[in-house]
Structure formats: C-alpha cells, structure tokens
Amino acid sequence: MKNNYFNFKQWKDKMLLTNEQGRYILLGKRDFLNLVNKRYDLLSKEILQTLKDRFFIYDIDEDVFIEKVANAYRDNKQYLFSATSLHIFVMTNACNMCCVYCQAQDSAQEKKGKMQEMTAKAAVDIALQSPNEYLTFEFQGGEPLLNF
C-alpha cells in the first residue's frame, strides 16, 4: 500500500485529514501515526477500508489509481466550468442593531456607507449577464433594508 497526498491538522483530540479529492477523515493520534509511518497492519480493517474508499491510501499494484480518483477530483472541481451563480450585494454598512459578531456599524456611529442607486442598477445588470440558469442574490451589510 501507499499513501496518497493529504493535509492534516489537529482538531480537538483527533487529527483531521483532507485530500485533493475533497474527502476527509478524523483519526485518533495513534491511527494517524500508524498511517504516516505506513504501519497499515496496525490499523483496524474498518479504518483501512475507509482510508481506501476516501482515497487516502491505495494498493501499490493499482496502476489505475489516477483513473479511480479522476471522477472524484473532477466532481470536486466541476464548479470551475460553470458561470457565477452567487451574487453578493453590500447595500450599506449601517445597522439598527449592535451584534458583537458583526462587521457592520451600529446606528450610533456617524460614518455609514450606502450603495448608490446607479451602482446597484449596474451591479444587478452585471449579475443578470451570467449564463448560469439559476442565480442567487445575497444582500449583506449592516442591515440591507436600511438602504432599500
């Protein structure tokens, strides 16, 4: 067996592994070390099979590994061949709330930006030029309705 390329990061008491095929797995530290050190015989059959199914490891005698992962890789990157469908509009950074997690300015602050009507119309015109069949318009800000 052989390891496929993967990224990893500690997450709580486990190791999170991700690969270019868009797959992930959480492993205990002992299993992670066994994988990295290629001690496959110390991994359980279940973990070993999951690692194979998610393209983290493969059999050395598999000459066609790239053909196996090609579909997963292609599906994961399919968005690169489609037009933009999500269009985000920041209508204003003014807000009538004061949420601690938000980047917007609350109503007590003086300087507030507002999207001009001409800019809004141009932005919508550009978004409607997308050849994508389905479009999503997302309004962000502060509170977008303060600049209705």
Rank of each mutant, 00 (worst) to 15 (best):
K2T: 06
N7F: 14
D13R: 08
N19P: 09
Q21L: 09
G22T: 04
Y24D: 06
Y24T: 08
I25D: 09
L27R: 04
G28N: 15
D31V: 02
D31S: 14
N34I: 03
L35G: 10
L35M: 13
R39I: 03
L43G: 12
E46I: 06
L48Q: 11
T50W: 03
L51N: 12
F56D: 08
I57D: 06
I57C: 04
V64F: 14
F65C: 07
E67M: 10
R74F: 15
Y79R: 13
F81P: 05
F81C: 11
S82N: 15
T84P: 08
L86K: 13
H87E: 09
F89G: 11
M91P: 02
T92G: 07
N93D: 15
A94V: 02
C99V: 05
V100R: 12
V100W: 07
V100A: 12
D106Q: 03
A108Y: 04
K112V: 06
K112T: 05
K112D: 00
K114C: 01
Q116W: 02
E117R: 03
T119G: 00
A122C: 00
A123H: 02
A123M: 06
I126F: 04
I126S: 06
A127H: 03
S130C: 01
E133P: 05
Y134E: 05
Y134M: 04
L135A: 04
F137V: 00
F137A: 00
G141M: 00
G141N: 01
L145E: 01
L146H: 01
